[in-house]
Amino acid sequence: MEIAENRNENIVILSLVGRLDSNTSDDLEIRILSRIDEGERKFIIDCSYLDYISSSGLRVLLLGAKKLNNIGGHILLSSLQAQIKEVFECAGFTSLFKMFNSKQEAINYLNNPH
């Protein structure tokens, strides 16, 4: 899996390409946790090119969400493909993450505090 990192002002946008499974989830875990340690609080996980997510991948996203929730941060998901969305639904994770159809929608959400 490839992780492309971009920024939009204070938002860290991580675009995942390929498969997020037990072999690759450590990379993402390290990336998210180190950014949180650096003080980042707003994350968008762009799933446009994410083909597969395993329970290991779910755990990493969950871990990120938990850490950020405790310190008032956010982790949003955008552009999930159907089969990815299904995994989230199956595991009952849809209520844990805010999901958007596009990256821009997610950015807009973060820039307009509720």
């Binding site: 779910l58 969950l62 199956c90 595991a91 009952g92 994770f93 209520s95 844990l96």
Partner: peptide, 11 residues
């Protein structure tokens, strides 16, 4: 169907 276990204690 509900949420996976170990995530939210109020699930």
């Amino acid at each position: 169907r509900g949420m996976a276990l170990g995530i939210l204690d109020e699930a």
